[in-house]
């Protein structure tokens, strides 16, 4: 608990209180507005958000289930580290005890084939680009945050397998923790605009399916991702609102979670600097 004392602890506590109040009051306000299954309001308004019902469903629920999935990864990483022992993760508290020693992972970089030596790095870099493309494509496809995180960390793992300790994709400890923290914090903070404007936590004020927010907010959060859909029946406009931003935060979150597991298991962990 030492890490939670001081300024960081106060900030964490305040953030936790705000999020808890927001979530609970949102749940309380939802009383009577949500029907079992897909509501009539939802069916009536879904086409205004996305070109088809599947995409609409994905827009609304994808981000939320992914947040819980990420929590599962964090717990999985923590439990793995605990099971494997202090040989891999050595925290301050355990310093007085002798750590469990294990042989470091053996990298045999000299055995790389010519193809892997010359195409391994471009493949890893292109995987990163592909991951970014997936997450930025969420304005037309709904999800993408989790997939992006998995693809980016796959690139990291690929480079680590090929080049060992001289990993050209050098996601350091501070970088991975920073990315994870920005993702988690960003995800939580993106709930605030909706809460302040409507009283519903993480209400999508960009898409505004219930027509609750002033037009200026609708424009600010909706227009950056607005697309036109030109059909024989006419021109339709749709926007995913804040969903792409949620997906980017989620991608950062997943990169932090999986990246930390890879980092700890490949290169070991200590509280000292990198």
């Amino acid at each position: 608990m030492e890490e939670l004392k001081g300024k960081r602890g106060i900030i964490a506590l305040i953030a936790l209180i705000i999020i808890t109040i927001g979530l609970l009051s949102s749940l309380e306000k939802l009383t009577g507005r949500v029907n079992p299954g897909i509501s009539e309001v939802y069916n009536a308004l879904a086409y205004l958000v996305a070109p088809n019902n599947l995409a609409t469903w994905v827009y609304d629920w994808r981000g939320f289930d992914t947040l819980i999935e990420t929590a599962v990864i964090y717990v999985g990483g923590l439990v793995s580290a605990l099971v494997i022992g202090r040989g891999v993760v050595q925290m301050k508290k355990c310093k007085q005890e002798s750590p469990v020693t294990s042989k470091p992972l053996e990298f045999r970089v000299e055995s790389l084939t010519v193809i892997l030596e010359y195409l391994g790095i471009p493949a890893a870099i292109l995987l990163i680009s592909y991951g970014i493309m997936i997450v930025t494509g969420s304005s037309t496809s709904g999800g993408g945050g989790f997939q992006c995180g998995v693809i980016m960390t796959s690139a990291y793992l690929l480079a680590a397998i090929l080049y060992g300790k001289n990993n050209p994709i050098k996601f350091g400890k501070r970088f991975i923790i920073g990315i994870g923290a920005i993702g988690l914090g960003g995800y939580a903070l993106l709930g605030l605009p909706g809460y302040l404007a409507t009283g519903y936590w993480q209400y999508n004020i960009g898409a505004d399916v219930w027509s609750l927010v002033p037009s200026i907010l609708h424009t600010i959060f909706g227009d950056p991702f607005r697309l036109s859909l030109i059909l024989k029946e006419g021109v339709f406009y749709s926007t995913p609102g804040i969903v792409p931003l949620i997906n980017i935060a989620e991608a950062f979150n997943v990169i932090g979670a999986i990246g930390l597991i890879y980092f700890a298991f490949l290169y070991g962990w200590s509280d000292e600097g990198e």
Partner: peptide, 25 residues
Amino acid sequence: MMLGEITPSLIAFILGIIFGTQLNY
């Protein structure tokens, strides 16, 4: 042309710069 066609490219560019700074090659 709608903003939704440009914004993802801009975001991808910024994310690319962020992750590009971590390359050690």
